[in-house]
Amino acid sequence: MNPIMNFVEGEIAKKYEYPDFRPGDNITVDYKIVEGAKERVQAYRGNVIQIKGTGASKTFTVRKISNGVGVERIFLYANPSIVGLTINKKGKVRRAKLFYLRELVGKKARIKERKYSK
């Protein structure tokens, strides 16, 4: 990237330190929500199905099944509203993008757990 853009993104983007998660992992994102004057933290738990982009526009997509409906949410890494991120389970997958999960339901849509680190 252009050195000026690199400098600017380093300067303005939030410095984040998340645990090292990968596509297939089951994570919980703690997201700050402002309702009128009140602020609260909402936890969003699901599987990471995609990590995309670099720098200030790097994002990850979390998919979960909510009341039988598939819900996907895209988060910016540098979003200051993310106050916490935890890994619940590491997944064993063979792809970087897990879009095939959208076609699967029930037991087929499970991800095997990665028990041993490489």
């Binding site: 853009m5 303005i12 939030k14 700050k32 402002v34 526009s57 910016l76 540098a78 979003n79």
Partner: peptide, 12 residues
């Protein structure tokens, strides 16, 4: 271009 978070948390 890049993105910038305002104080209200808006992504601009």
């Amino acid at each position: 271009m890049t993105n910038f978070f305002s104080e209200e948390g808006k992504n601009i």
